[in-house]
Design a protein around this nucleic acid. Structure first.
Lengths: 147, 147
DNA sequence: TTGCGTGCAAAGGTTTTGCATGGCA
DNA sequence: TGCCATGCAAAACCTTTGCACGCAA
């Protein structure tokens, strides 16, 4: 096991990831650090994120196509994994924690012998605003969704 | 609606995609065309694939991270109606028609105001063979899955 | 002091874009 | 003939890597 130094660069990156528990891109990190007048090179960010990911404290996801990867802090706890809905019209990304999806995950695992990686999976479709209100709707009390 | 020309470049690309129904990368296409002494520029391939995807006859998937995207021919057939599971280890694509997934689709639509496009959605994860048999399994009598 | 971490710049790869030309209808 | 498609090259990105220096332990 390699020993590891604690540097202010890594702390700054990790702090930012902790504060923004949803999705963070490389450019988000760069922008945030610039605002705080902290200078960290891109290479350092990539190396830090690679290390964090291999340690399991952050998760990497590839959402778009040309766009870069996104990262999410998950801590050392077994995080409540959620799914992502992506609107193919407006491009909005919706984070969704939902019991129904969890049971779907279990169903697929038990009966179809397939272990879903929710972090990598993006469900495509059309959001309510882009559907011109054509979707009947009701709030779901079992689920939490946030932008 | 834009009209569309049929050119030998597009036919060649589409033919190759049809022959290799699993997944095909840009470099696969380039290599194949080179072997057949067909000269097509990279830009044309990207533009053709983008068009094919928007028409729904092929599907794009991002499997690795640094590696480029892969494409798969799905035709105009029933592949748009069911979901696809993609193993991130062996690359196998599993077609899945399942009542559970249909009810999930309804749930998301009714209660989360999001209309899922199953044809565009690829669910990523690990298949049973790549999981070293760690997945407990039982056949699902409500569902149909085929390779 | 030791050796990992960082910054810088260059390189590598993938994907996009502008513009003139080619080719289908 | 009228457009759309193509080729070429440049550009725009995203990410990685080599090397010398800085800095934590």
């Amino acid at each position: 096991m390699r020993s590891e130094y604690s540097t202010k660069q890594r702390s700054a990156i990790l702090d930012f990831l902790k504060e923004n528990s949803t999705h963070v891109s490389i450019s988000d990190i760069l922008f945030h650090l610039k605002e705080k007048n902290i200078k960290i090179s891109v290479a350092t960010i990539y190396r830090a994120l690679e290390r964090f990911e291999s340690e399991g404290i952050i998760r990497k996801m590839v959402v778009g196509q040309g766009t870069g990867a996104c990262y999410q802090y998950v801590g050392s706890s077994s995080c409540m994994e959620h799914f992502h809905l992506k609107c193919i019209r407006c491009g909005r990304l919706i984070h969704l924690s939902c019991e129904f999806l969890e049971s779907m995950q279990n169903h697929i695992q038990r009966e179809h012998r397939f272990s879903i990686s929710s972090g990598r999976t993006v469900i495509y479709g059309t959001c309510s605003e882009c559907s011109d209100g054509k979707i009947d709707t009701a709030p779901c009390e079992n689920c939490h969704s946030h932008k």
